[in-house]
Nucleic acid binder design. Structure first.
Length: 608
RNA sequence: GGGGCAGUAGCGCAGUGGCCUAACGCGCCUCCCUGUCACGGAGGAGAUCGCGGGUUCAAAUCCCGUCUGCCCCGCCA
């Protein structure tokens, strides 16, 4: 340490290396250096060997010439892919014409005088120097420590680290305090299935892994930490998907003395900063677009719309009500969208029909418009003015096809919304150079669960209903659980942030009034005894001066994936589980010993 | 819980009743090569065709079962 300044950032030099594999430039020519790293590639020319040495920082070509390397030439001859080795020698300028512009270190090479093998390597199960296409994910996960050597994944890990650091710094600058909350908590009666952990010291009792820091962060508001955040691991025991894993990370935050606008502004600030810092794609609009839940459903058929492209839905129930086509005339709702696919073959339309059926709808009808002529298996059911009216309603232009789904309104919208997404993909309408943020708000407070025949909170039961709807809740108390239109009309002060069709963030203004909180719990069917037992701590806390508060949880893995343009969040996680919630590398989950089971007071029964 | 698809050499894949003694690319091994950087050239090794059973003169191929994985629906406040 030669100066105070250098103490801030210690050198990476050690007895193994004077420089990293990304350090050396033309200015180092003439110095003697030592590099250690992995053999990325070895090109043997018989009398001359080139080796690319790799570490996290880059790639440097070393040159092993028997004239300068002496006895070390033999050692270099025995090097193979992924051996860990040390090379010593002089940095020399490469002959003109032999420079590699693609490599930051490409102007120089190291003329090796001495090399040694630190640790040999088995032949890796897949190539490391370039990433093979279509590698089976299970193979990758089994050798994740090798997969992570691939440049793409290594970059993702760096980006993740940078983004987490950036978010922390940004939030701390806005006066947020980072507080950790327990991972081991109590089971939650609402929401996702809990991951359960037996409590050894309390026979027959269990912890649940946190699904969210929700309750703790609200209690932190009561405690007076008016701006809290945490990069929190959360756990949900539901079947995984490409964009869903059993454990993920949230940027969790909560604010006191705020209204919705304050929270939106804060999140917009953070997301804009992250997008500018970590993506080259352009924001479609600042401030972010905002639409209501109802508008999102009716225009896009989903509450997480990708607004980078059109193909908006139109309700044509009125236009088809009187038609001779019984399927349309009888349906509760007919939804349609116009897409530039009139040129599609019968087979291509059949594929769309098949796709639609898989979404749960009865079917898909289509109508092409070419040279001012309508063509379709169903065209005969409509008069010319009726056809024109359909074109007007859907905004269909020449060269478009109008696609119809007739069903219940909810199913027709959902089905056509998925088809819209599918077409957006197929027609390459999803511009990867755009970041289209949109806030979806005015969600219903409750929804009807037809399976369990009960009212459930749409988001969670701590969400504040709009003030003008509070009376609806009080009025519904004590009544039998029915799909009561009035209660279901209650709107919640809830907002989701959607980016390019992915829900990145969900938040709300919370209930801080103990009576209202208890009423909401009662309304969704919880008995007072259960409320006191499971949520007594929240209600009690609210009685000690709870400030008005609200916040959000942002899906960190998803944010990074979208900004990096990766479709699967597993690409952004160092050691993810596979799609069956297993880790093929460690074998988790696994059976435990009889001794462990005994300590935990647990008996495992097979084939229950 | 349900549906679809897949499993053939270390990796990616072809082969859908007999010309299969299982092809091809990458990787691997041996030899040659002093300016390569996806080095090149010559030669070579490597596969109980996921597993079990059945049909057949004959099975990678057909049937039944089973295991594993991927995608989707349900589920995911």
């Amino acid at each position: 340490m030669t100066s105070k300044k250098s103490a801030d950032r210690l050198s990476l030099a050690s007895s193994y290396r004077t420089h990293t594999c990304g350090d050396l430039r033309a200015e180092h020519v003439g110095t003697t250096v030592r590099l250690s790293g992995w053999v990325n590639a070895r090109r043997d020319h018989g009398g001359l060997i080139f080796i690319d040495v790799r570490d996290r920082y880059g790639l440097t070509q070393v040159r092993v010439d028997p004239a300068t390397a002496g006895d070390s030439f033999k050692i270099a001859d025995g090097l193979r892919s992924e051996f860990v080795a040390t090379f010593e020698g002089a940095v020399v300028e490469r002959p003109s014409g032999m420079r590699n512009a693609a490599l930051p270190t490409g102007a120089i090479e190291v003329d090796v005088t001495k090399c040694s093998i630190i640790n040999p390597s088995q032949t890796p199960p897949f190539e490391i120097d370039h990433e093979p296409a279509n590698l089976d994910e299970d193979v990758r996960l089994r050798y994740r420590y090798l997969d992570l050597r691939h440049e793409r994944l290594a970059k993702h890990m760096q980006m993740r680290s940078d983004l987490m650091h950036f978010a922390r710094t940004w939030l701390r600058r806005q006066q947020f305090i980072e507080i950790e909350t327990p991972v081991l908590g109590r089971e939650t009666p609402e929401g996702a299935r809990d991951y359960v952990v037996p409590a050894r010291v309390h026979p027959g009792e269990f912890y649940a892994l946190a699904q969210s820091p929700q309750q703790y962060k609200q209690l932190l508001m009561v405690a007076g930490f008016d701006r809290y955040f945490q990069l929190a691991k959360v756990f949900r025991d539901e079947d995984p998907r490409a964009d869903r894993v059993p454990e993920h990370t949230q940027i969790d935050l909560e604010m006191s003395f705020v209204e919705r606008e304050d929270v939106l502004k804060l999140v917009e600030g953070l997301m804009t900063a992250l997008a500018e810092q970590f993506s080259s794609a352009a924001l479609v609009s600042t401030p972010f677009a905002r639409i209501s839940y109802e508008e999102a459903l009716s225009r896009f058929g989903t509450d997480k719309p990708d607004i980078r492209f059109g193909l908006e839905l139109a309700d044509v129930t009125d236009q088809t009500r009187a038609s001779k086509f019984a399927v349309f005339a009888k349906a509760e709702s007919v939804q349609a969208l116009a897409a530039p696919v009139a040129r599609f073959s019968r087979k291509e339309f059949d594929t769309l029909v098949e796709f639609t059926k898989q979404t749960g709808a009865a079917g898909l009808a289509w109508l092409t418009l070419r040279n001012n002529k309508f063509e379709s298996p169903i065209a005969k059911f409509f008069s010319e003015p009726e056809l024109k009216a359909l074109a007007t309603a859907t905004g269909a232009k020449d060269g478009d096809a109008i696609l119809f789904v007739a069903d219940t309104r909810a199913r027709a919208l959902d089905s056509l919304g998925r088809l819209r997404n599918h077409l957006g993909e197929q027609l390459k309408l999803k511009d990867p150079s755009k970041l289209a943020f949109v806030w979806v708000q005015d969600f219903p407070m409750f929804e009807w669960n037809p399976q369990e025949k009960r009212i459930e909170p749409m988001h969670h039961m701590f969400t504040q209903p709009y003030a003008e709807h509070v009376d609806l809740i009080a009025a519904a108390l004590g009544k039998k659980q029915t799909p009561d239109a009035a209660v279901l009309a209650t709107k919640a002060n809830l907002f989701d942030l959607v980016l390019n069709g992915y829900e990145l963030c969900s938040g709300s203004i919370r209930i801080w009034q103990p009576k209202l909180q208890r009423d909401v719990m009662r309304l969704i069917g919880l008995e007072d005894a259960e409320i006191d037992q499971k949520f007594g701590h929240m209600l009690r806390a609210f009685e000690y001066g709870a400030p008005p508060h609200g916040g959000v949880g942002l899906g960190l893995d998803r944010i990074i994936a979208v900004l990096a343009g990766e479709p699967s969040i597993r690409e952004m996680i160092a050691f993810p589980m596979n799609s069956k919630a297993r880790d093929p590398m460690t074998g988790a989950p696994s059976a435990i010993s009889a001794q462990q089971l005994k300590e935990l007071h647990i008996q495992v029964k097979k084939n229950i």
